[in-house]
Design a protein around this nucleic acid. Structure first.
Length: 289
DNA sequence: CACTTGACCTGTCCGC
DNA sequence: TGCGGACAGGTCAAGT
């Protein structure tokens, strides 16, 4: 599921809900969901207090008072849902079927706080994971060394953006913008949305793109991601925020999952194709190869 | 190196 | 109604 705007939405939600709480106990289903959950859990997770929550690319970092952090990747279908003690043991929320149903068969990791509230990590497809790592080592791990710049950072310029693509001249712009080492946090939805905004065909070769077009793509990518954060992300199926609620960006999407509908710019029917191995939505007239 | 493809999983939807 | 296949927000490890 989650791309940068969804993970950022979860981060903001969790910051309000769990910072300051103390972990009382945890459970997990398989080591795949919570690898290296060995003695470190007893020593650095149980009784730890949550001090802060960060995001880098599509990864969440829950910082603990013990000098360790929980590093979490939601991949395609991961969710982090907080349930307070009243919801668990009281009447529940009448209009909230997801939260009332937790834990369910997709629950992989359960973190119980000392006030009896809970954070559930659910993941239907089991691609996601939670890892417990020393906070100081996180900047040195492979992923953090390779991942590209945050596209919404204030000091990220269109020129810096264009330069990131220098290594990927012979591939499609869609493959390149999905590459996390080029730019952080872009996934299938916001790739298609920003390429439509910039009037670039997803199959267009990187080497053929002008600096003016890179600037347009930069502007569109930032606009689309900022709008998506404002709308709480995109929920096609699985994605929910930290309170189990869906995001509404899909109401504003211009091409993603709008194949068969009219392009809002030129009224041509939007098509779906396969680019870089991913389902790809495109206006065949506006977006020039 | 850069690039492409298949694998990892479960669930749902679509056509026969 | 059942069944097979394609597909789903993302990375990885292989292969060329």
């Amino acid at each position: 599921m989650p791309e940068l705007p969804e993970v950022e939405t979860v981060r903001r939600g969790l910051s309000k809900l769990i910072v300051g709480k103390t972990i009382a106990s945890t459970q997990h289903d398989t080591d795949k969901s919570f690898p290296n959950a060995d003695a470190d859990v007893q020593n650095f997770l149980i009784s730890a207090t949550i001090t802060d929550i960060h995001r880098r690319a599509k990864v969440l970092l829950i910082e603990l008072s013990t000098g360790y952090s929980l590093m979490i990747h939601l991949k395609m279908t991961g969710q982090l849902v907080y349930v307070d003690a009243d919801m668990r043991f009281g009447a529940g929320h009448p209009n909230d079927s997801l939260v009332n149903a937790l834990p369910d068969r997709s629950t992989r990791v359960t973190i119980v706080f000392s006030d009896n509230s809970v954070l559930y990590f659910n993941d239907q497809r089991k691609f996601g994971w939670v890892k417990l790592l020393p906070t100081i080592e996180i900047p040195n791990i492979d992923f953090m060394q390779k991942v590209g710049p945050e596209p919404l950072e204030a000091d990220f310029t269109p020129e810096a953006f264009a330069k990131r693509f220098a290594r990927r001249k012979k591939t499609s712009i869609k493959a390149a913008i999905l590459d996390q080492s080029v730019v952080a946090g872009v996934g299938n939805i916001y790739a298609d949305e920003s390429l439509w905004g910039a009037k670039l065909h997803p199959s267009r070769l990187v080497g053929s793109i002008s600096s003016a077009d890179f600037k347009a793509l930069y502007t569109e990518l930032r606009a689309v991601m900022n709008l998506a954060i404002e709308k709480g992300g995109s929920s096609n199926q699985n994605y929910v925020n930290a309170e189990g609620k869906k995001g509404s960006y899909m109401d504003f999407a211009r091409v993603f999952r709008r194949d068969g509908q009219a392009c809002s710019r030129c009224h041509t029917t939007i098509e779906k194709l396969r680019v870089a191995g991913r389902g790809t939505h495109v206006c065949p007239v506006c977006q020039i190869i």
